[in-house]
């Protein structure tokens, strides 16, 4: 294990995780709002925001799927050392991490069951940019309308049509994080 795996965790885990979670929760509660979370620095190509999400939400109870360029020995070691989360395939993952194209096929993830819609995967999508323009969002958490540059509008529309089933997305770029829960209608 390279020494890189041992660094980049939260300096003060209880405080840093609480602050990072508040950002993630506000993003999930208000789709389209871009929050900034920090304190974690995983090895490249992990963004600081995705690193903080992993440290805040993942532990030995949450299987993670790493896609494409994020599936490197350095990232695997970092996740194992800091969270203890097992690595798995798409269908069994509670969290999946990668760029949008690398995460394909996007219908391979758990979408929950009609009796337990919470048993659905959360995708952490590393974005080339994150701006409040593009797709128009309506639904819970949005007063009138919000805008966000989504990676794949047709998929997000199909995902919303599955409601209350479906996957939930965190979109990350640098320190920025936004979210698209399955409840959001996309145009």
């Amino acid at each position: 294990m390279a020494s890189e795996a041992l660094t980049g965790g939260f300096a003060n885990a209880p405080h840093a995780a609480a602050i990072a979670f508040r950002g993630a929760m506000r993003a999930m509660a208000m789709p389209g709002v871009i929050e900034h979370i920090e304190g974690a620095a995983g090895p490249a190509p992990l963004s600081p925001a995705a690193s903080a999400l992993l440290l805040t939400l993942c532990d030995p109870e949450t299987p993670i799927y790493l896609a494409g360029i994020h599936d490197t020995a350095a990232v695997r070691d970092w996740i194992t050392f800091h969270t203890g989360a097992p690595l798995t395939d798409r269908a069994r993952a509670m969290f999946a991490l990668g760029t949008w194209d690398a995460l394909a096929p996007h219908d391979a993830y758990a979408i929950g069951t009609s009796e337990y819609p919470d048993r659905a995967a959360t995708l952490i999508v590393e974005m080339p940019a994150l701006t409040a323009e593009g797709a128009r969002l309506t639904g819970p958490g949005i007063e009138k309308e919000a805008a966000l540059n989504l990676p794949d509008i047709p998929f997000c529309q199909a995902n919303a049509a599955l409601y209350p089933l479906g996957v939930d997305l965190f979109l990350t770029h640098g320190n920025a994080v936004a979210a698209l829960p399955r409840s959001t209608k996309v145009r």
């Binding site: 999930m28 109870e61 209350p164 409840s183």
Partner: peptide, 15 residues
């Protein structure tokens, strides 16, 4: 806290 936080996020996603 992580377990509760995950439940809160799923709760927000399915109001």
């Amino acid at each position: 806290k992580r377990m509760i936080r995950r439940a809160i996020l799923k709760g927000l996603a399915v109001p």
